[in-house]
Amino acid sequence: MKRHLVRRGGMLAAVVACVALAGAAPASAAPGDGSAYGVSVDVHLLWQSAVKVGPLAAANTSGPTSNTAVSANAAGILTAGVITTSAVRDDNSGAVTAKASTADVGLPLLKAALGTVSVKAIEAVCTATQEGVKGSSTLADAKLGSVGAVDANPAPNTQVKVALGPVNVATLILNEQIKNPDGSLTVNALHLKLLGGVVGALGSGDVIVSSATCGPAAPPMPLASGAGLWVGLGVLGAVAVPVGLRFSRRRAGA
Rank of each mutant, 00 (worst) to 15 (best):
S184A: 05
G94S: 08
G76Y: 01
G54I: 00
S35C: 07
A121T: 13
G165W: 11
Q130M: 15
A201W: 03
A201F: 08
I83Y: 05
D182L: 02
P64A: 04
L236F: 00
L21F: 00
V15M: 08
A36N: 11
L109G: 15
T213V: 14
A20I: 04
R251H: 10
G34L: 02
A59G: 02
S204I: 10
G148Q: 03
A112L: 14
M11L: 14
G203L: 06
V105A: 12
D151P: 04
G145Q: 10
G9V: 03
K161F: 03
G135A: 12
L56R: 03
V133A: 15
V241M: 15
A189I: 04
L110Q: 07
G232S: 15
A238F: 09
G76H: 01
V82E: 14
A69E: 07
A224W: 04
R7N: 13
G23E: 09
S66D: 11
K52V: 11
L114F: 08
D206L: 02
A58Q: 03
A103H: 13
T127H: 14
V41A: 08
L21P: 09
S184Y: 02
D182P: 08
W47M: 07
A80D: 02
K161M: 14
S248G: 11
A149L: 02
G32C: 13
H191V: 03
P220M: 03
E176D: 10
L114K: 12
A121R: 12
G9F: 04
D182V: 03
A240Y: 02
G232M: 07
G200N: 04
T127Q: 14
A238N: 03
Y37V: 10
L194S: 10
S93P: 03
V187N: 15
L139C: 08
S62T: 08
L202C: 10
A14I: 11
L46W: 02
V117C: 04
Q159M: 12
L107W: 01
G200T: 05
I122M: 13
A72W: 02
S146V: 12
G63Q: 05
G232R: 05
A57C: 06
L229C: 03
S62I: 07
V82S: 15
S40E: 12
G145A: 06
D151Q: 12
A50E: 07
V167C: 13
G38W: 05
A22G: 09
V147I: 11
V43E: 13
A58G: 00
V167A: 15
A201D: 15
I122H: 04
A72C: 11
K2Y: 11
A87C: 09
T127M: 06
A189L: 01
A112Q: 15
I77M: 06
G215N: 11
P156C: 06
T84N: 13
S146D: 08
V243M: 12
A13E: 01
